[in-house]
Amino acid sequence: MMVDPGIIASLIVLIFLCFAIPIGGFIYLSVKKKHVAKPFFIGMLVFFVFQMVIRLPVIQLVLPQTAWFIAMSRNPWLYGLFMGGTAAITEELGRYIAVRFWLKKNRRYADGIAYGLGHGGIEAMLLIGVNNIANLFVVLSGSSYMAALIAVQLNYATIYITLFERILAIIVQIGLSILVFYAVRSEQLRYLIFALVIHTMIDAAIVILPGAFGVSVYWTEAVVFLAAVILMAWMVKIKPRFDPEGAFL
């Protein structure tokens, strides 16, 4: 099945930006601020270990073998809260452990940004970038049922909504990182709870809105967009408490 060359080009842009945004952001931060490599790469490591090694294999391979999980998955409210809650607990717990024990000398505002870029960046690279590299090669081969199936699913709206969602997700991950960094710096654990609640609500909404109300992907992206805007506004407000001596960028 012949695929529109524009679709192929758009898919390549999506793949490129999934890698270029976090890596470019890291390079920019490294020029502006010193010693941001450690939080950036620890952010990557924490996401990989807590999500890819621990949570996702359990959810994808172990829990589907249990009756209670199968029953729960039929209820979008319970399933959404479970998926959102487990994602929040694993990622925010991992974030807290990293900041509390591994980044004792890296708790600046810039370090929080770097950590969020690493955390959200590796998520974009692995879940979207790598998967779509595989899709691209299969489609370009054009010689299998799978290639035809992927080609049918590809369209401009899907590709650019995915790109928009990844940009928002990275912003959200940076905002959540700043919340956890501030929780550790200020010794006020309520900010960790805020991060847990916000993370749960965002991920749960992505499941509940289409599952319970049948809304389109545009509404779920609107929720993520709203969360990103709120977190960005909070980041601007909280910045002076991190680095009162001067501007960040």
Rank of each mutant, 00 (worst) to 15 (best):
F137W: 11
T200H: 05
A71D: 13
W77R: 00
D111A: 09
L179C: 06
G211H: 07
T66M: 05
I133C: 00
M125V: 02
K105N: 14
D4W: 04
I167N: 10
L136I: 00
F194D: 12
F181S: 01
V223F: 00
I198F: 02
I198V: 09
P57R: 10
S177Y: 03
K239E: 12
R166P: 02
S30E: 08
N135M: 07
I208E: 02
V139I: 09
I7E: 11
Y145R: 14
V236R: 15
Y115F: 11
T200Q: 05
R55E: 13
G6S: 14
P5C: 02
Y191N: 01
A37D: 05
L78N: 08
I59H: 07
Q65S: 08
F50I: 10
F248N: 12
S30D: 07
V229R: 12
I161N: 13
R166W: 02
G214T: 05
P57Y: 08
N155A: 01
I238Y: 03
I167F: 09
K32S: 06
F213K: 12
V31S: 10
L126M: 15
V207Q: 03
T66V: 07
A20Q: 07
A67E: 15
A157I: 10
G118Q: 10
G211L: 07
L249C: 11
Q188F: 05
W234Q: 06
I133P: 01
I27K: 14
M201F: 13
H199Y: 06
Y79I: 00
I178P: 14
V130H: 05
V138K: 07
